[in-house]
């Protein structure tokens, strides 16, 4: 394998790894549940996507012919990540998990406050 291909694969892998780490860092570090929801749904999914692109290039270069097998995992993750985030968020909304005080428009508190503008 030539050096340019190796550098490209390494870039995709490292970028994916850093995004996965940032997503998990957001999960560990932010204050309330709804803010934590943002890290895993976006950063981690993109991180795995980057690693899968790296692996597609790797296996297409080392084995005979193209290898799109791995793309299925990325496709599946990109379809299911918003759905699972939605349903976990809905469960949290149902149980009325404690929010940060500075969150605006908390749906189960002041109903009348800001809803007239969007009606």
């Amino acid at each position: 394998m030539n050096i340019y291909l190796e550098v490209t694969i390494s870039l995709f892998l490292l970028l994916g790894g850093v995004f996965a780490l940032i997503g998990s860092l957001g999960l560990a570090r932010l204050q309330d549940f709804f803010m934590r929801l943002h890290g895993p749904t976006k950063a981690t999914t993109l991180g795995v996507g980057g690693m899968i692109i790296g692996s597609i290039i790797f296996f297409s270069a080392t084995e005979a012919g193209l290898s799109f097998h791995e793309l299925l995992i990325a496709l599946f993750l990109f379809i299911t990540a918003p759905v699972s985030a939605h349903i976990v968020g809905k469960a949290a909304l149902h149980r009325q998990i404690a929010c940060e005080e500075r969150t605006r428009n908390i749906p189960w508190q002041r109903q009348s406050d800001n809803s007239d503008s969007t009606s």
Binding site: F19, I22, L25, G26, R29, L30, Q31, D32, F34, M35, H38, G39, K42, A43, L46, C99, E100, R102, T103, R104, N105, I106, P107, S115, T118
Partner: peptide
């Protein structure tokens, strides 16, 4: 999606007291 992730990454790494979360309808 790519841009969003860069933005969210910066927000997560930055000072967390400055974040202003909100619900929207």
């Amino acid at each position: 999606i790519v841009i969003a992730n860069a933005q969210v990454a910066v927000l997560i790494m930055g000072p967390r007291q400055k974040l202003q979360p909100a619900f929207m309808r």
